[in-house]
Nucleic acid binder design. Sequence first.
DNA 1: CTGAAAGCGCTTACAG
DNA 2: CTGAAAGCGCTTACAG
Lengths: 350, 350
Amino acid sequence: MAKIRIKDIAEQAGVSVGTVDRVLHNRGEVAEETKNKILEIAKVNNYQPNLIARALTSKKRCVFASLLPTPTEEDIFWKRPLVGISEAAAELEQFHLKVENFFFEHYNEQDFIKQTEAILELNPSGVVFSPILSKESSEFCQKLDQRGIPYVFIESKLDKSNYLAYVGSDGFHGGRVAANLVDFGVPENGDILIINLAKNLENVLHLNQRTQGFLSYFMDKGKNQGLKISIEIPKSDPEIIQEKLDSVLKKNKNIKAIFITGSKVYKIAKYLISNELSNIILVGFDPIEQNIKYLNQGTINFLIGQHPYQQGFKAVRKLFEYVLLNNELTKDEFLPVDIINQESIKLYEA
Amino acid sequence: MAKIRIKDIAEQAGVSVGTVDRVLHNRGEVAEETKNKILEIAKVNNYQPNLIARALTSKKRCVFASLLPTPTEEDIFWKRPLVGISEAAAELEQFHLKVENFFFEHYNEQDFIKQTEAILELNPSGVVFSPILSKESSEFCQKLDQRGIPYVFIESKLDKSNYLAYVGSDGFHGGRVAANLVDFGVPENGDILIINLAKNLENVLHLNQRTQGFLSYFMDKGKNQGLKISIEIPKSDPEIIQEKLDSVLKKNKNIKAIFITGSKVYKIAKYLISNELSNIILVGFDPIEQNIKYLNQGTINFLIGQHPYQQGFKAVRKLFEYVLLNNELTKDEFLPVDIINQESIKLYEA
DNA sequence: CTGAAAGCGCTTACAG
DNA sequence: CTGAAAGCGCTTACAG
């Protein structure tokens, strides 16, 4: 079936192209009857606007917003999705699409709320963000829902919200991949320590899911028979880590591997080095600068990456496809997970 | 600086847009003087054609060619780059770009030559191919050079040729990544066997590079102190593998890990299983169907992937950027390598 | 050798 | 509520 144009619809409906355009864009001022007729013809013929022509002529600029933690010394991790977002935006610029980036201080609820207000003020056609602060995020979702603004999650998601799509890894899956790695290297009778390092554990769903995935692996199939000890360290100051780990490792002399559910692996690596425990296998998430340092030294054995670049890139693409193209989308797009070792890091670029 | 249009150039040069278009497209029939003036103005103002407008109006269709081994039962590996090529082509279709895919029977020189002739016949604006047959490929390169047709390599490259760009992994790097993996799992005193499985070893550069990379790792830094034994098996029939491995393993009782430099890992996995040697660590390349089967069974411990999809995708993009956009390109784009284990394979999609 | 004009498919005022 | 016309930046015959 040849592509149908606005002109063709106009002819079939016995009206002018201006009228067709008005109904297609809901610009009102069209008789109900004419409107239905046009909509019907468009539907039957599967009308798809020619974006090239639209881009050439339209002055309208569509804006999306992104909201991510500020990439800081502690969280450079957030740089990569930003690059993905920007590159997707650059590609879509020809279609008059723009992305405005907002940032909030990681784990700072007040700042997060402030930024969400700024976004609502902007009234974008779509939003990309990471609901790492679940309570505040779900309130934000409600407001977006009210205004009919679609939103795409990256990094983690809020299942009970009305999100358009999610692009990111599956925490459970990431935990299992890590478990498989640990299981390959650890002696069968060695014990394994799981550490959750986060300010506010309830708010960081994905760390929990990773723990679950990790444990589930050993319930299903792991060959390791040792204990699986799970601890939480709410603050990550060196002294607190020192104190907590000293006590755990004293009680448990047989720990041969440590799995960190988040990206602050380097803090544990530091501890292991200063306590001459570098022979313990150490696996965690995200090739951020500090982690790479210890990976290169051999203290960290594997890092698990989550295609942060792709997350940002694809999230913007999804918004584009939904808003401009009216395409159907895969709601949950689970990206594969990367296993990174001392050698593969050299060319890693997420 | 605001974007300059053909119309602006025409005004500045005191001619019509038709004339400007003629010189910009080398359609001749323009006085030398006028031509130079226009070229000068275009250059000074850094004229960039508006591709959107061009696409809307132009009837010209630009065609690229790809040449890859036919994806067969043995080599499904070649499916993924093809998907990448097709998806890049789909995205660029709006700019009237088309890619025609040619296939040759893997390792069949005659068929390869036949296909290259068909491509020259088509006279495309660019070619994407993999020079796995080095002799025939370099002859093809020469012919392309003569005709001024740019070509992009994927998977491996011919350094002495005049290629536009290369997109793929670095064999040496892949070998090192594998070595790091083996080194993590193998006992310090275990011996390691390296197997090259290929019809014609001279023609498959990358297998050699991987061996070199693998060995270099242990020269630099590996903790493993065992022997590194390298063998070649020119034919991969089960009986030949059986015979060869029986003899090697009989002579060497201490082999704890095997590294396969190519993608026929599954053939070795079969051997290990039927000889009850599954406890030997097995690492090789490419998540093709047969390999995945043994990865899931646990006979293969790790597979190394090479982003085949990205290779195809990016190769087409490069051609597009060079031919249509006149952009400068990174000549050698080394893609990162993927480490795949039993768990990560579940979401792997290259 | 060169220019004027039509057209790609859509959007945008403007007039009625 | 609706239509006719101009315009986005480029390409393509066609006329001279």
